[in-house]
Design a protein around this nucleic acid. Sequence first.
DNA 1: TGTAAAATCAGAATAATATTCAAAATTATA
DNA 2: TATAATTTTGAATATTATTCTGATTTTACA
Lengths: 159, 159
Amino acid sequence: MIIENTISLDKIDLAILRLMQENSRISNVHMAKELEMAPSAVLERVKKLEQKNVITQYTARINPVAVNLKLLAFISMKASHSIGCMDTANELSKLKEVQEVHIIAGDDCYLVKVRTTDSASLMALMRNSFSKIPNILSIRTTIVLETVKEEQQLVIPEK
Amino acid sequence: MIIENTISLDKIDLAILRLMQENSRISNVHMAKELEMAPSAVLERVKKLEQKNVITQYTARINPVAVNLKLLAFISMKASHSIGCMDTANELSKLKEVQEVHIIAGDDCYLVKVRTTDSASLMALMRNSFSKIPNILSIRTTIVLETVKEEQQLVIPEK
DNA sequence: TGTAAAATCAGAATAATATTCAAAATTATA
DNA sequence: TATAATTTTGAATATTATTCTGATTTTACA
């Protein structure tokens, strides 16, 4: 028995991904017209893309300012030893203000993206939560003054 | 005539945002049950949230590996003069491999998030595109070894 | 505080869409 | 090439979106 773990996507799959990435509330009927096939066939493919974990979520992007999240910061951290790297990263991931946790190459160990109401709430997060996480040796916080572009849209290849 | 630019969201709006952020394909019927109100009323609110630009997009999140985007990098840049900051940022934003462009406080001027197929294609992007953008004094590239968390989900307040 | 205007809501009717399923077509495979 | 597996289609049905009207609530403000 061969375990299939190669995800192979054809032209139509990629086109569906492109459409749904642009607007996840697009109807199957609309996609079907675009792709010149039956809505039921589109639905079938969409479901497979979900099952295969190619599509991981349908989400509404919300203006952060509208919900009073005005501060964005990137935090680079050094860890005391790389052994505990994953534990530390997992702890960081649990915090809901933390949008991203990356393990990086280079001087530092982690890069963390954080969104809070203001600098006071960032300070509170660091004092109350970061301080409890083990292995963190040093922290360097970079405040975002202005975001010119922010997407997670992927460049989906032709074939 | 007073121009209204204060976005005020009540409890129900925030609940809708929470639901749609989690799953943008949720039906009005489902939301209506959750919120104990009529589907038509939910729809009305959703449309207003769209109009007010509180909801900016409905998008499908796609597994980057599935579409062969295996490399993620953060690039810090210094600019030769802050005057040209926005022009440079705008040029960077035009590149589709560039997911984020932030103007930051601190030593550097920009922080850029880039996703490409591999290190070769990142190199190509830098050679072909970055090199044409003016005002860039220096570049420091940080390669992501592993992403532990990556969301853009916002922590939506209670009230 | 009272009143008018505006906003919100519910409910019913209709339009559109999602979903299911069996059969046909296509594709992959031995 | 024959066969199996997958994909697609099209029709039927279930569910949902959308519209609209009147009622209710909220809000603004005199």
